[in-house]
Structure formats: structure tokens, C-alpha cells
């Protein structure tokens, strides 16, 4: 690493500085998780080393947190998010493929329905949706949590945009070779759509990971409670227990962090390198 050019070094420095600026508020959460409750807001101003490093350390908040239903709920969140991503990717890629590759009458209508579906504010329809789901006896079940995440109009839209960018010749050549639509999908389009699938998976993961009002309504039982709902119980009518909330937030953000770091290499492994782009 001795022969890094000054311009490269500057680039790295700017990149790192950007990352740190975005991370600073999270770092403050992490640090607060290890502070005694009364120290959390003590060192906000003026800025000093103690603003970003605890002067007194404690693990009490994690003890409180894991004595509650949190461990179970973090599993629930993860299970729901992963199941949604897997199921949702299947459902949404199939739909996006039909909307971008297959030509059929009414395509624009179906596409419009998909667009409208993500314009609908999910929290604002939570009450009627709750009635529907309860009618299907899906309250307090994983299905009740997962189902609303599967048909994600936004993910369909994203994947469609990607499929539209793949050359028509790919499909035409394959069909000349006698492939059916499903084979074209499975053997030609799917293998090329790695990065787009990761982005779409991210959309669905975030949808579930951020979900709060819906899980609170449909699955409040301890057995199915998700992490965001679980830490909200430290915000009671008699005051906010900031310590356990910070500890919970730290756990909640560490999991996607690990997953994202793991998936980062795949973002750059794009179709550009395969030379198949239009």
C-alpha cells in the first residue's frame, strides 16, 4: 500500500468521511446503550471525548432488554424478513418479467395497478386490512406478518426497470432455440438479475424491518412480536427507558449491518462485467 496515489488517498478519505458522518448518530446510539441511564443525555454539549465515549460503562440495559421478550422478537423479525424476501422475490420477479418481457393486452393496466399499490399508504389502510386478515383468522401468525410484504409493487417496479434494460435479442434468440417463457425467465433472465434481485430484496427486507403499526395490530402476542414492537414497550405512559431502547436499537441495526456487509461484494458483480447489457 506504499504507492497509493495522492488522488486515490483523497478519494478514500472523502469516502470514509462520508461514511463516518452517516454513522455518527448510530454510534451515539451504540454508546448510549452502554451508559447508565442518567448519562445518556448528559454530554450533548459542549462536544468532547465523553460525548462519543462512555465515561461509565454498564451492561444493565442489555440485561433488561434480554430479560424482556426481545430475544424471541429479534428471531421473529429476522424470520419474517427473510421469509418475505425469499417469497417476495419469487412473486415479484415473476410479475416483473411478465410486465417487461411478455407483450400482452392490458399490460399497462396491470402495471398501473402495481404502481397504485405502493402509492397506498400502508399505515392508513391498516384498519381495513386488519379486518380482512382477521376474517381469514390470520391474527397472531407468521403468515399475517409475511403476507402483506410479498406482493411489493415497489420491488416489481424496480425489477421491471431492470428487465427493460436487458436486450430483446436475448429473449428472441432463446425462443428461436425452442425455449418456453418459463425457461427464458429461469435460464436467461434470472441468472442475469443478481444485483437487481439484491436491491429488490433490500426493499422487502426494509419494509419488514421498519414495520411497526401493522405488526403491532396483527401480531401483538409475545410468540409473534417483532423487534420494533418489542422495544417500544420501554416507552410507557410513565416515561421512556432510554437505555434499553438504545440497546435494542443497537441490536436491531447490527443485524442488517452484518447482512449488508456480507452482500456488498454482490452489488459490484453486475451485468456490465458479463457484457450482456444493451
Amino acid at each position: 500500500m506504499a504507492n497509493i496515489k495522492p488522488s486515490t488517498a483523497l478519494h478514500i478519505a472523502i469516502v470514509a468521511a462520508t461514511g463516518i458522518v452517516f454513522f455518527l448518530p448510530l454510534w451515539w446510539i451504540f454508546v448510549s446503550a452502554f451508559r447508565p441511564e442518567e448519562d445518556i443525555f448528559r454530554y450533548l454539549s459542549p462536544l468532547g471525548i465523553e460525548t462519543f465515549l462512555p465515561t461509565r460503562w454498564t451492561l444493565d440495559h442489555f440485561v433488561t432488554l434480554f430479560e424482556s421478550t426481545f430475544a424471541r422478537s429479534i428471531f421473529n423479525s429476522l424470520f419474517v424478513a427473510v421469509a418475505t424476501v425469499l417469497g417476495g422475490l419469487l412473486v415479484c420477479t415473476l410479475a416483473a418479467f411478465a410486465l417487461s418481457v411478455i407483450e400482452f393486452p392490458g399490460r399497462n393496466i396491470v402495471f398501473t395497478i402495481m404502481i397504485v399499490s405502493f402509492l397506498i399508504p400502508f399505515d392508513a389502510i391498516a384498519l381495513p386490512l386488519y379486518q380482512i386478515m382477521r376474517g381469514a383468522e390470520l391474527q397472531n401468525s407468521y403468515l399475517g406478518l409475511i403476507l402483506p410484504g410479498l406482493g411489493n409493487g415497489l420491488a416489481v417496479f424496480l425489477l421491471r426497470q431492470f428487465f427493460l434494460g436487458l436486450p430483446k435479442e436475448l429473449r428472441e434468440a432463446a425462443m428461436v432455440d425452442g425455449m418456453g417463457w418459463f425457461q427464458v425467465f429461469w435460464r436467461i433472465y434470472l441468472p442475469l438479475s443478481g444485483p437487481a434481485m439484491i436491491s429488490a430484496g433490500l426493499i422487502m427486507f426494509i419494509f419488514q424491518w421498519q414495520a411497526y403499526l401493522w405488526p403491532l395490530l396483527i401480531a401483538p402476542a409475545t410468540e409473534y412480536k417483532v423487534a420494533a414492537v418489542s422495544i417500544a414497550q420501554f416507552n410507557s405512559a410513565y416515561g421512556v427507558a432510554f437505555g434499553p431502547i438504545m440497546a435494542g436499537a443497537m441490536c436491531i441495526s447490527l443485524i442488517p449491518m452484518i447482512i449488508l456487509v456480507f452482500f456488498q461484494p454482490y452489488f459490484s458483480n453486475s451485468v456490465a462485467s458479463t457484457g450482456s447489457k444493451e
Partner: peptide, 21 residues
């Protein structure tokens, strides 16, 4: 550049914590 994947993750991370927090 070395480490870019990590910095990207940090920029993306805020979306992963509950908005309430």
C-alpha cells in the same frame, strides 16, 4: 477502493433502524 463496501454499508444503515429510534 479498499473498504468501500464497508463505507457504503454505513451510509445505508440508517434505513435499517426503526424510525421511532
Amino acid at each position: 477502493l479498499p473498504g468501500t463496501g464497508f463505507w457504503r454499508t454505513l451510509v445505508l444503515l440508517p434505513v435499517a433502524i426503526p424510525a421511532s429510534v
